[in-house]
Design a protein around this nucleic acid. Sequence first.
DNA 1: ATAACATTTCGGTTGTGAGCGAAGGGTTAA
DNA 2: TTAACCCTTCGCTCACAACCGAAATGTTAT
Lengths: 223, 223
Amino acid sequence: METDRLDILGDALAHPSRARMLTALMDGRAFTNKELATYAAITPQTATAHLDRLEYAGLITRLKSGRHAYHRIASEDVASALEMLSTLTANPLPASTPPELRRARSCYNHLAGRLAIEITTALTRKKLLLEENGNFAAQPSAIWGKLGVTLPERPRKQPFAKCCLDWSERKHHIAGPMGTALLENALAERWVMRPKRDARFLEITPLGRSAFAELLDISADRY
Amino acid sequence: METDRLDILGDALAHPSRARMLTALMDGRAFTNKELATYAAITPQTATAHLDRLEYAGLITRLKSGRHAYHRIASEDVASALEMLSTLTANPLPASTPPELRRARSCYNHLAGRLAIEITTALTRKKLLLEENGNFAAQPSAIWGKLGVTLPERPRKQPFAKCCLDWSERKHHIAGPMGTALLENALAERWVMRPKRDARFLEITPLGRSAFAELLDISADRY
DNA sequence: ATAACATTTCGGTTGTGAGCGAAGGGTTAA
DNA sequence: TTAACCCTTCGCTCACAACCGAAATGTTAT
């Protein structure tokens, strides 16, 4: 029986410095070498070595631009798997998760946390979303436009809305292109904001609360 | 931001010997120190050290019985997460998965592979299963008894049927108590058999093929 | 051109994990 | 009781990962 190369993947996660860098990258944004080095409290030289191994394991991709090297999570699948892994470690210590992260955060390029779960369940309740084989099927509706989502004309190879397991809520929220559109629209409409530049958690604005309440019947006391 | 202890988990997977032992344990059965040492091609002393770390990371549990020490995957969540991780490594090399493993195998204590996917989709198509929030809701039917499943009288805290992402098929199959019952019944009825003692893959018997065709309208050419 | 900056490469130190042989502790079978 | 067996602990070697300082490479700004 083969090794499945599970060890290469584990090796990439095995070091605190690498784990910290990955959590910083989890919201999908790209960071430079120096930023990640600062975040992990190591020198840039050492960060380079760590990022080499993360790239070798297929967890991140690099993009050189000018004198900067940008690093980001390689794919949405990687982000989902990392969220999934957190469920294992977070399980024995559910209370240790910071409340602001549980409320709303970005996962790769879509929303996560209680807000994301509420949005997903509201759309499911309205029969606009149907969970099926790890993806969501969407029904046409005027709501999508208000949420910043343009449904594809024809079915494509890549699923338009994928399920992503939320590690703090242990339920599925929306990933894939639809998830990206929802997050980008929410940021553009100032429904949610990113208070700190280097943080994953998101702040829900009063404008956002009323928008979610009006569009999806989500009362603010649910998140 | 905290480290989430992702590194401890990665550290546990980081070594080829540990990765091999984990894949051997993935079908949910317990193995002794010596068996795992043989499997990983190392001495029992070294295996002890590795198993210490797997236990420390919460991935396995130990049970001493007589002069034997039995090791098994700590929980179904761990098994699911490991399957999930395999999707990352298996993705670039889809063809590398042995065909017999893709057809039918055991994952922790339930069925996985194409057979498991066919069973799950057949039950979903008949509206006997509804996927929801990472679990399956079951509708009463006479089929369950024939499949060896006894639905619980009242809703319980622990979900009776959970979703588990199949790494070779990338769809959800049935885990949880219902999954366990399905596998145990299939083994007891000799619908599937375990040809090799130390292998995860399962062989579907002619008896099994006719049973699945009759009960669930699954033609044999689908798996 | 020169300076300032980001990143990477090189060299060397240090610490730790993996591995095995030998020995100890404990259980089962003869 | 003795022998066989499984597991673990101890002691040791060896290899490699992590880290940083120094220096090289390449880019942007002055």
